[in-house]
């Protein structure tokens, strides 16, 4: 019987929410703590692993990230950093949110950090009305409630131009 340690080319199959299957090298999949835990337990790599919350487009992005990070040696941090910023560069907000959800579900901390940071950076210096637009969030404050929160927040804006 070939153990997983002897067979480095072992692959496993991940299935996206919309039914697409991805054949992934095991060392790439191990970037995900969720998959690592599954493989460490009794889950056989011959099984197809369904990821019902992640669509094919997002899963392809996630696996691209995992492959780069799994293949890079630890000495190439600079190269990985430029890959990360390039990876997220032109991504729209919807794709970024899907990445956060996927990285959170699959427990890929590095990806979760950079995607969350990218979203946080887009709302930097933006007034709340604009943040509502960006995130498509409905204002559920009454004018009185909003005024009260604004009053309570006054300190946050003091000392800034």
């Amino acid at each position: 019987m070939a153990s997983s340690i002897e067979n480095n080319n072992e692959k496993l199959t991940l299935k996206s929410s919309d039914g697409e299957e991805f054949l992934v090298e095991k060392h790439v999949a191990l970037q995900s703590t969720l998959l690592q835990n599954m493989l460490d337990s009794d889950c056989s790599s011959a099984d197809v692993i369904p990821l019902p919350k992640i669509d094919a487009r997002t899963l392809a992005l996630v696996l691209g990230y995992c492959k780069k990070h799994a293949d890079a040696s630890s000495s190439k941090q600079g190269e990985l950093n430029s890959f990360d910023s390039e990876f997220l560069k032109d991504m729209d907000m919807g794709a970024l949110f899907n990445l956060v959800l996927a990285a959170n579900f699959m427990e890929i901390k590095g990806l979760l950090d950079i995607a969350a940071q990218k979203i946080a950076d887009t709302i930097k210096d933006k007034p709340h009305q604009e943040v509502r637009e960006i995130f498509h969030v409905e204002n559920d404050y009454t004018p009185e409630e909003e005024a009260a929160v604004r009053e309570e927040n006054r300190w946050a804006f003091e000392g800034f131009p």
Partner: peptide, 16 residues
């Protein structure tokens, strides 16, 4: 820069 937090908390009750 606390202004980021100030903006966020004015978006909605859930955000606050």
């Amino acid at each position: 820069d606390e202004r980021d937090l100030g903006s966020i908390s004015l978006v909605s009750k859930r955000f606050l």
